[in-house]
Design a protein around this nucleic acid. Structure first.
Ligand SMILES: [Mn+2]
Ligand SMILES: [Mn+2]
Ligand SMILES: [Zn+2]
Ligand SMILES: [Zn+2]
Lengths: 145, 145
DNA sequence: TTATTAAATAATAATGTTTATAATCAGTAT
DNA sequence: ATACTGATTATAAACATTATTATTTAATAA
């Protein structure tokens, strides 16, 4: 089965003035086919066989293009690198403190929290961020690394 | 009225082998007296009149000491600097996308979300992070900058 | 097909935050 | 006085990300 969302993403880019280059296509393809939430460097390393001369700046540039087109979402963290998510539907993440694994999960939404924040702080609220932290099954079962 | 929480923080440090130096005291005092959520550089700049020779590394070192002692909490963001919060009680933040202002707000807690994440992802959940983003009253009323 | 042109790439430098290192300094104990 | 311990300062280094610029290339149309 081909990846429908990748085809839609390519179509969506074609409808703008964004050119399709081999590097851009490969980065987009990697993002939409991988199950995880890779960093820019993950993507760069995964494609270095295919594009030995690709610059890391190209990865960052394209990730910004994809973000601006609403095709990927950036997950930012304080210390380390951002991670990128080709799943732009509403969902939250559970993150393992030990190995950094990120797992999707769904929850009804926190409209009530946004409403309260509006009232108590007087903000015009646009969105929120929520993540759960803990230890993943693999790390729980003792096998370190 | 003197700051009770500052006194308690100083007392808590005294009970360990952490020495009290003028710089350390000033950083702690600044954190516990300021209403905002300053960056390390905010603190550094605010104290440069008082300590013209203080190194920025001293600010970072002390923030780490305070964090390890449980006296301050670090709020990390993807792009820019971390912010530090001397209020370690349970509370959430509303953040202005335009000016970066951070406002405290309270909410009953999201135990249900943590429980669901445990079940659906098989994690041992420890904690969570939640922030609401929007536009603050000042920025809403048109006056840019 | 070729020419045109705006956009994308690669290489590199620069930025900004944070951490590491090493010498110096300031207390306290011996 | 000497040694010891930890803190501070100055500086270099790490690291992710962005900016710059010359070169290459994709899309478009003659
Ligand atoms: Mn996801
Ligand atoms: Mn706070
Ligand atoms: Zn794990
Ligand atoms: Zn604002």
């Amino acid at each position: 089965m081909e990846n429908t969302e990748l085809r839609e993403a390519l179509q969506s880019l074609k409808s703008t003035k964004v050119r399709m280059t081999p590097q851009r296509h490969a980065i987009l393809e990697f993002l939409f086919n991988c199950e995880s939430h890779p960093t820019a460097d993950d993507i760069y390393k995964s494609l270095e066989d295919q594009f030995p001369n690709m610059s890391v700046a190209t990865v960052y540039n394209n990730l910004r293009v994809f973000k601006e087109a609403g095709l990927v979402r950036e997950l930012t963290y304080g210390d380390s690198s951002s991670r990128f998510d080709s799943n732009t539907s509403d969902h939250y993440h559970v993150i393992c403190d030990e190995c950094g694994k990120i797992v999707d999960f769904h929850y009804p939404g926190l409209d009530e929290v946004e409403t309260l924040a509006e009232h108590v702080a007087g903000f015009k609220v646009r969105n929120h961020r929520m993540e759960v932290y803990g230890t993943c099954p693999d790390c729980r079962s003792g096998q370190q690394h």
